[in-house]
Amino acid sequence: MAISIISFIIIQLPQGDYLDREIQRLEEEFGDSSSLAQVEELRERYGLNAPLWKRYLIWISGFVRGNFGESFEYKREVDELIWDRIAFTLIISVGSLIFTYIVAIPLGIYSATHQYKWSDHFLTFLSFVGMSIPAFLLALSLMVFAFEIFDVPLFGLFSAYYEGAPWTWGKLGDLFKHLWIPVIVVGINGTASLMRIMRGNLLDVLGQPFVQTARAKGLKEIVVVSKHAVRIAINPLISILGMSLPGILSGSAIVSIVLGLPTVGPILLNSLLNEDIYLAGTLIMMLSLLLVIGNLIADIALAWVDPRIRYE
């Protein structure tokens, strides 16, 4: 509810409305906006003259019934435009998330248990580089690199042949072939920082009295780390899971814009820029819902891993 109100306010914030934007676009692109006659009539029809609260009520009551309104720019039902894109966004995001955790946790553990060894320094340095590269730069560079060196055009999610073709194994393979660049680019920032956090946490935990006690009991270091320390050190990581979702979604948006992927990112940016309010509003709501669900899953996972929280 609160989210929906904030979403709606956000999309209403900019001055002017879609039609002003459309006029601007047509004029900038072609020097003429006469193809968009009857501006006032359109404004009336889209209900852009109604007061804010009324528009909100109309929008939200439609939203809960699954009627998201009509996109001005595409002149289609929002419903028709978004599901594919949400699916691809999920594929990329989940892929990046899996990539992030699979790579980051072992490296973090390794780094922490080898503190100040050269391998730790190397990994630390690598993770810093990973954290420091702006995603959009990496995305474009990788794309150009792949094209120039290997002569494979890797933009989009499918090659020209499979675009629009029905789903087959070949098409799935083609998708995976194109997926690795966005997954790595989106995941790399998260991986690096997650690794740092894992290392930090584990070092913290390794300094704790109960770990010392375990050591004092004469347990082997490997057992101390895996049995006692890692489990505790992973807890905050799981609560981070929820927190890292917005970053991943934003990251996938930026990378998709650069690579021209059919995810939510480019269409959201565009709809916000063009004040295509119902499309933008629906997308923001959907992304927010995704994040809420993600957080919920993270909370459940945390309670599942750490019994102490369950006892509340």
Binding site: I10, P246, S250, L268, L269, L272, I284, L291, V292, N295
Partner: peptide, 18 residues
């Protein structure tokens, strides 16, 4: 939760415009 349920890009864009 409410605050973090917003991806930052649209927020930036909207605030930038406002």
């Amino acid at each position: 939760e409410i605050l973090s349920a917003f991806p930052d890009i649209p927020l930036w864009m909207a605030l930038g415009a406002a």
